[in-house]
Design a protein around this nucleic acid. Structure first.
Lengths: 341, 341
DNA sequence: AAAAAGCTGAGGTACGTAAATCAGATTTTT
DNA sequence: AAAAATCTGATTTACGTACCTCAGCTTTTT
């Protein structure tokens, strides 16, 4: 049978209250007594029953999710996953507040973080904008001892407890290897399509991609990135121009969320020979394009996993418990037409 | 505030005992009263607090894992993950018993399943051998209303509640597409290396692989599968012979657990031009081979996810709760040298 | 030295649910 | 019609932990 506080009390020859004071580091226990209790805890191998403790405390975890207002499919999906987590709040003893902030603006994010730092949240998850003022605000959240995880986009050199997202440099490298291997001995130019290189994840993906390209596939020329601002109309225009200007394009790497502009162009007038196209983010559109052969591979991060992982980690940090590292690693999913979900 | 059984009782004008009888479908409540209580439950939007219920019941989930005794790295890893789950048993209110059975023998598996069916387990997970007598034994487990998930290898047309493993046909297809695309215009023979085609997952991988090969890459000739019984020495011998016999081999697909025999052969005398090699299961050896370029891709299933998923699903089934389908889908991980964990 | 203040420990109640025991009302049996 | 059996509902205790209140003891203050 699992030992309980009663067993500890009996074994150490003290009352429940004393055991409780030792367990919860409350004052009012003589040193010698404390040691006796701690020995009993160690000998019996007592572990606190978190469920019972939460029940007794009527514990709820008030978490805050700071999400950018962004119309692209990935962010909409992320938001939906947060809403599903909110729907499960009752069962999970969480209470999740969502703060909307304009995308890519650090000022609003800083304000939101400061509001969290001043409040009584048990944890905060946010999509980071990698800027100095955000880093400072994160410092204030950490100073308030509020667990903090970055979501999707990380904040470098910050005191966040955890990053729930993929390694974007690795994603770019992976895309490059797939691109190079799929092209084989074909020669030509590769065009990367980003949303904005001011965004850290886009920049990292491009960096990883460019490095592997240069190193392993020097016969392929990498064009400067087209920045489409993830705006379908703009992407359509810019990509159309680029393709006209460079008839020898043999590869396209769309590392942002501009697929709604890219796919129509590719489907309207298929190039010959068909370029190798690799996208990020699995959506209905990209899934269909994979099936009909317009594109060749999709790299994906699972927003549902990211949200659930963020919540698990925040809970664990709030309770000072360890996390299962392997469970919380967000993987880069690679989809070909053969392994679609 | 979340409504509790007390709120229901007050709202319906009955006692706690009556609410409890309705909630747990116990007899002894007049039809009219039952309806009143159910209406109160619906109006207030009551949901049972599973943690509190488990506490009151002193609930533990006695689960049984039936694992084949098998020395290959994947099965050893699976076993280690089950052991880690056992280490977490206290916190998760589980009590996990492991039954060892000889690999690939349906008789021992049937005996183990029958033992489970006769016992008081709250759920069972097992690595299925796809045979009629196993199917029948599974039927007896289902008849005893014991939740049941297959692990790693599925049991067709069986009453299992869930399958915690990858889609092996899709895995084979994915391997074929990667193989074909990596080879580009190269011509030659492809050799599949299996453990045994009597094992369902190996057969399915081969089937998926062969179909895509035939359909999309007809210029590549698929040799009959080499069955190496996942025995390093035997694999080394057979693969050596095959390579000598067919100097034009340009692709190797190792779909079983025979990598410890294959890798030494490839590293000892590298072929030129280097064949494209795709393996299953990420281990230290395959990871190293990926980094040094001996092999080109690794398909993997995450044993830790499979075990944790199996436990989550068994718990949910035992409590009659729904599962988060997306969370429980086991994905085919594709690793290139660029996205190793 | 008496009173006040702090220290240490004991006991009890609450959290939300399950389940056993108990009490009153209704129906069935003889 | 009385006794027994069955229904239906109420009360109480328990699960493991947190935390509040109170009592006895020791130390400090006046």
């Amino acid at each position: 049978m699992k030992p309980t506080v009663h067993d500890i009390a009996r074994s150490a020859g003290v009352s429940l209250a004393t055991v409780d004071r030792v367990l919860n580091a409350r004052p009012g226990v003589r040193e010698g007594t404390r040691v006796r209790v701690e020995e009993a805890i160690a000998t019996l191998g007592y572990v606190r029953d978190v469920a019972a403790a939460n029940l007794a405390k009527s514990r709820v975890y008030p978490f805050v999710f700071i999400l950018p207002v962004n119309e692209n499919p990935f962010m909409l999906g992320l938001r939906r996953e947060v809403e599903e987590a909110i729907a499960r709040s009752g069962a999970e003893r969480t209470r999740i507040e969502v703060i909307d902030v304009p995308a890519l603006e650090s000022a609003a994010l800083v304000a939101a973080l400061d509001k969290v730092a001043a409040g009584d949240a048990a944890g905060v998850a946010f999509v980071a904008v990698d800027a100095p003022d955000v880093r400072e605000a994160a410092g204030r959240v950490a100073a308030a001892s509020i667990p903090m995880v970055t979501l999707v986009s990380d904040l470098s050199q910050s005191p966040r407890d955890h990053y729930a997202g993929i390694d974007n440099i690795a994603a770019g490298r992976t895309a490059a290897t797939l691109m190079g291997r799929f092209l084989g001995s074909r020669k030509g130019r590769i065009v990367p399509l980003a949303g904005s290189l001011m965004v850290r994840d886009h920049r990292e993906r491009l960096d990883g991609f460019a490095e592997v390209m240069r190193q392993n596939f020097p016969h392929l020329e990498l064009l400067p990135a087209v920045e489409g601002r993830d705006d379908p109309a703009l992407v359509e225009k810019l990509i159309g121009e680029t393709l006209r200007q460079h008839p020898d394009i043999c590869g396209i790497y769309s590392l942002g969320a501009g697929n709604h502009g890219l796919l129509p162009v590719l489907e309207a007038k298929p190039l010959s020979p068909k370029p190798v196209v690799i996208l990020h983010e699995l959506t209905e559109a990209s899934s269909a394009a994979l099936v009909n052969g317009t594109i060749d591979a999709v790299l994906n991060q699972d927003a549902g996993h990211e949200v659930r992982s963020a919540i698990r980690v925040l809970k664990a940090k709030a309770d000072g418990l360890p996390v299962i590292a392997a469970q919380e690693r967000i993987r880069i999913d690679i989809f070909l037409k053969d392994n679609l979900p």
